Simulated assay, not measured.
Amino acid sequence: MDTRLLLVSHAATAAQRAGRFPADDPLDARGRAEAEAARKHLALPADAAIFTSPARCARDTATALGLSATAADALADIDYGKWRGQRLADIADEAPHELAAWTCEPDAAPPGGESFGQLVRRIGEWLDAQQADVRSCNAVNEAAFRVSTHHRTIVAITHTPLLRAAIVHAVGASPVVFCRIEIAPLSLVELRHSRRGWTWWPATMV
C-alpha cells in the first residue's frame, strides 16, 4: 500500500504578521477568512485520514478548511523556547548572534528550545511511523499486499518549519539546506511513500 501525504501550513496569525514568535495563537478573523478562501483551491480528499498540530492556529485552520482532524503531538510547531511570543526585532537587538545562528545553522536552538535538526528527526519519526502502521496492517496478508494498488491518503495541518523538515527528511538532504526552503501560509506540500521510500511531488491543487 502506497501512502500519499498532503501537508498544509496553517493560515497566518496576527502574531506572525506582527513579527512575533508563535505562542499558541489562534487565527484572527483575517486568518480564518484566508483559510476559508483557500478551501476551494486545496485539493484535499474527503476520505483521507486527517491530522493537525495541537496548536490553536492549526486546529482553527483545519476547521476553516472544513476538516475534522485528530491532534498529533509530533506535528506541533518547533519549540521556540524563551523566544516564544517575543518580537523578532527585540531578539535581533538582544541576542543577534544567537538569532543569526538559529536562522542558518541546523543544530542551533533558541534558549531552552528545539533546533531544526531535532525537528527533522521528530517529523521523520512520525513520517516513518505512518508507513510502519501501513506495513503492520498488511502483514497478515503479505501476498495481497504485494499486488495491492490501494493508496492511503493522509492530510496534516501543521506549521511551516514542519513542512520544511518533512521535505528534508523525504529527500534525504542535509538539514543545512533548511534556510533555502521557503513555505508560505496555506501552502501545500505533497509527499508519497512507495517501495523506494519517501519522495517529494509537485503539490496538486484544483
Rank of each mutant, 00 (worst) to 15 (best):
K82Q: 07
A69W: 06
A49R: 14
A95I: 02
A71K: 10
D73Y: 05
K82V: 07
A43Q: 02
G85L: 11
E105W: 00
H97P: 00
A76M: 06
D73M: 07
C57R: 15
S53Y: 01
T61I: 07
A46F: 04
A38W: 01
A74M: 10
A64G: 06
Y80L: 08
D90Y: 07
D93I: 04
Q86I: 01
W83T: 08
E94I: 02
D73G: 02
A43M: 08
D60E: 03
D77K: 09
D90K: 04
R56C: 09
G81V: 08
R56T: 12
D93A: 07
D93E: 07
D79F: 07
F51M: 04
R87C: 06
G85K: 00
G81T: 05
T63W: 11
A62P: 03
R84F: 05
A37D: 15
W83G: 11
C104G: 12
C104I: 03
A48K: 02
A89D: 14
T70R: 15
L42Y: 03
T52M: 09
D73Q: 13
R56W: 12
P54C: 06
R39V: 05
R84N: 12
A43N: 09
H97E: 07
Y80G: 00
A95W: 00
I91C: 07
D79S: 12
A62R: 09
T103G: 13
A37S: 11
G85H: 08
A38S: 15
Y80N: 11
L67S: 09
A35Y: 01
A95K: 03
R39D: 06
A49S: 13
W83V: 10
A43G: 08
A38K: 07
E94H: 03
A101E: 12
G66S: 04
A49V: 08
A46V: 13
A62S: 11
G85S: 15
T103I: 08
P45W: 00
A64L: 14
R84M: 09
L88A: 10
S68H: 14
S68W: 05
A69D: 03
D77M: 05
R39A: 12
D47E: 14
D60T: 14
A92F: 01
D77Q: 13
D47M: 04
K82T: 08
E98R: 00
A37F: 10
D79K: 10
A95T: 13
A100W: 00
H41M: 05
A71N: 02
R39Y: 06
C57H: 05
A55C: 09
L75A: 13
P54T: 01
A49N: 08
A43E: 07
A74Y: 05
R39K: 10
A64N: 08
A55N: 04
A89N: 06
A76H: 14
A71V: 03
T61Q: 06
S68T: 11
E105R: 00
F51P: 02
Y80M: 03
T70I: 11
E98H: 01
H41V: 10
A100D: 12
T63H: 14
E98V: 00
R84V: 08
D73C: 04
